[in-house]
Design a protein around this nucleic acid. Structure first.
Length: 208
DNA sequence: GACCAGGCACATC
DNA sequence: GATGTGCATGGT
């Protein structure tokens, strides 16, 4: 089965997923860090805490103490680590782009991606989520579901690395941010419902 | 009570 | 360069 066929099957089955569930690019970026290895429901609670206190801006978050920030994002788990990672990202955003997301968005995508990867706490998936879902750049996001699903359907080897999987998508699909957006969201949807870790049978998998 | 969730950095070999 | 480990909450 080809990647394009998988997409059309998923889209037919599930329809548009309306990702990323956030109001602004900055909210996407914060969410991308909070979502690391974490259930989205918990991330939503953490973001809700920040919004409730009207702290969801680069300047206000940066001004918080690490301890205070950690307590606000507590529901997202790994809160001490993530408070530090958010601060690192905010430092980057303020020092490189004066906290101006539009200025950041005007930079060449490959250059910006390399820059994001220098921030401690931002790895490939987080950087790519920021680029695709925050800034609508043509970058495919790979995650644990993506790799698991593709390897189960024998399109990649089980131990394929991030860059390898990403290249497969990006050389196969039409370079279209909206397509990349929907495709990744659909893979997560499929993964959540049918490809849980210890259910290797992928029971009732709509791709079968 | 075990397992899982939209990773990443760091230590060690 | 590969492999293991810490980080932590909340839902099923």
């Amino acid at each position: 089965m080809t990647l394009n066929l998988i997409y059309s099957k998923l889209y037919t089955r599930f329809g548009p997923q309306h990702w990323w569930p956030a109001k602004t690019p900055f909210e996407v970026m914060v969410g991308a860090i909070l979502a690391q290895n974490t259930n989205w429901g918990n991330v939503r609670k953490a973001i809700e805490n920040l919004k409730e206190k009207k702290l969801l801006t680069p300047g206000k978050l940066y001004a918080l103490s690490d301890r205070r920030l950690a307590s606000l994002i507590r529901p997202a788990g790994y809160f001490n680590v993530k408070a530090r990672r958010l601060k690192n990202f905010l430092y980057f955003l303020r020092s490189r782009y004066k906290a101006n997301i539009q200025a950041m968005s005007r930079v060449r995508t490959d250059f910006l991606r390399r820059q994001l990867l220098t921030v401690n706490g931002i790895g490939p998936e987080t950087a790519d989520s920021i680029l695709l879902y925050g800034l609508a750049k043509r970058i495919f996001v790979v995650d644990a579901y993506t790799t698991r699903i593709l390897s189960r359907h024998r399109l990649i080897q089980k131990d394929a690395g991030y860059a390898q999987v990403q290249r497969l998508f990006m050389r196969t699909l039409k370079p279209d941010a909206q397509l990349f957006n929907e495709y990744h969201a659909l893979l997560v949807r499929l993964g959540k419902e049918f490809c849980l870790k210890n259910k290797p049978k992928c029971s009732l998998c709509p791709l079968k």
